[in-house]
Computed example of a mutant assay.
Amino acid sequence: MIGKHLPIFYKTIGLIIGITTLIAFLLNDFYIKWLNIDQSRFDLILKLVILISLVIIVFSKEKYETKQITDLRLRELKGSISAGITDETLNLI
């Protein structure tokens, strides 16, 4: 099964977003005072932005992508999603 992927330049966009968010984590106190926002809410927003940037990186194509790479990516993605759902389900119990 061949899935749809984002174009290759999205990987660069995801990296820029991720690096910018990591810098915001390092300058945490400055941004909290500047934005006048709660610490826990700011951390949650940054974690979600990092997660979104990683998803963008994962779903973007490689420069030279073969059918084997696509199949491997799909198989591993299914495994990681099922592991994540299992982990969240166990945390709720």
Rank of each mutant, 00 (worst) to 15 (best):
L48G: 03
I50Y: 12
Q39M: 09
D43E: 13
G3C: 06
L48A: 02
L54C: 10
E76K: 08
L48H: 01
E62W: 12
G14T: 14
D43M: 10
I8L: 08
L15H: 09
W34C: 13
K78V: 04
K47S: 15
F25R: 12
L48F: 00
S40T: 12
L51W: 02
L6Q: 02
Q68H: 06
L6E: 04
Q39N: 07
T70E: 05
I13C: 09
I56G: 04
G14M: 09
Y10M: 14
I52C: 05
I69S: 08
P7E: 00
L27D: 06
L6A: 10
K67F: 01
W34I: 03
E76H: 10
K47A: 13
I50P: 04
S40F: 00
T12H: 13
I52L: 14
V49W: 00
Y64V: 09
E65V: 02
L27G: 14
R75T: 02
L26M: 15
I32K: 04
Y64F: 06
T86P: 00
A83L: 13
T12F: 03
E65C: 12
T66P: 03
D29F: 03
I19G: 10
L51K: 03
I52E: 01
V49M: 15
E62K: 12
I13Q: 06
F25D: 13
K47L: 05
Q39L: 15
F30I: 03
K47F: 05
K11N: 11
I2G: 01
